[in-house]
Amino acid sequence: MNADKPCVVLIDDEERILRSLSLLLRSRYDVLATTDPVQVLNWVRSRPVHVVVSDQRMPTIGGVDLLRQIRDHSPRSMRLLLTGYADLAAVEAAVNDGEIFRFLEKPWDAVRLQETIATAARIALDEFARLAPAAPVPPPVSREPAPAVLVLDEDPLTVTAVRELLPPSSLVVPATTVEAALARIEAQEYAVILAELRHSSDDVIGALKLLKQASPRTLAIACSSLRDGRLLIDLINQGQVFRFLPKPLVRELLRRALQAAMERHRELRHEPQRLRRHAVEAPREVSLSSRVLDYLRRIRDQARIGA
């Protein structure tokens, strides 16, 4: 155990991959590598583990399931999933259950992998440095307004479903275009944006990626009948989407996603240092109008002033 270096745990069922990754990382990190999920859980229970890099497809447990258990035992550990394919079910589970920081793809780009792990390690080091139990988030007081929810969808039934699931005091605002949604976010803070990824004319996906940079405290729930694992991986890495819900929407899953997002938003308001866990990669191939980019710039500037 080297206390001077961040601890990075690697798990993969292929020894050659563990050797390659260990060789790449051992000069900067205290690297622990294993093919045994039980050993990983023992490590995170017994010592600070700053970053866990887990393969997805392993014979005894899926990487998402393992990272979910690690989150329960060591929530400060940053969780990264290593995968050689865009398995849609695994990607959706990684968003909705594992809340992973990044997807890393095989074969990996060494520079990008090292940059991602370095970012994750810096965030974890800061959180472990504040290892004393965080003060409990105070209960809401009457003067604190209920979190506002913005629904970006051309289908009016989506906003109806959200209103039916939330208390009457909750502000639920519809928008049918990206520009209208951003105008509302510029005017006031929204805890959650529920966004349909498919749109007749707008690049909702690109807007969500840039919105996370401009307004990191806004939690995005993406929904769509579009089932594309590659697209969702990009939304995780470049947009830190909080949840993904397939359409047609299931009421109970929608209710849980909204509740979890509003709770997380409240935590971020009271513990703003946790926003670092929502850092995103620079988005690629985003094509948005100058008007939309102007909205995003103004939202970003407002967030900086209010920080």
Rank of each mutant, 00 (worst) to 15 (best):
I11L: 12
D12M: 12
R16V: 09
R16S: 05
R16M: 08
I17T: 11
I17Y: 07
I17F: 05
L23R: 11
L23W: 01
L25G: 00
R26E: 09
S27G: 08
S27H: 10
R28T: 04
R28C: 02
R28D: 15
D30M: 01
L32P: 05
A33C: 04
T34N: 14
T35Q: 15
P37W: 00
P37L: 06
V38D: 10
V40A: 06
V40Y: 04
L41I: 07
N42W: 05
W43V: 01
V44D: 05
V44I: 04
R45G: 02
S46N: 15
V49E: 03
V49I: 14
V49S: 07
V51A: 03
V52I: 15
V53H: 12
S54C: 02
S54A: 15
S54Q: 10
D55N: 09
Q56F: 03
R57C: 01
M58F: 13
T60F: 08
T60D: 02
G63R: 09
G63T: 12
L66A: 11
L67P: 05
R68V: 11
I70T: 02
R71V: 01
D72L: 15
H73Q: 12
R76K: 13
M78S: 11
M78R: 14
M78W: 09
M78P: 02
R79L: 07
L80I: 13
L81C: 07
L88P: 00
E92R: 14
A93G: 07
A94P: 07
E99L: 05
F103I: 06
F103E: 10
F103T: 10
L104P: 00
L104C: 13
E105M: 15
E105H: 14
E105S: 14
W108M: 02
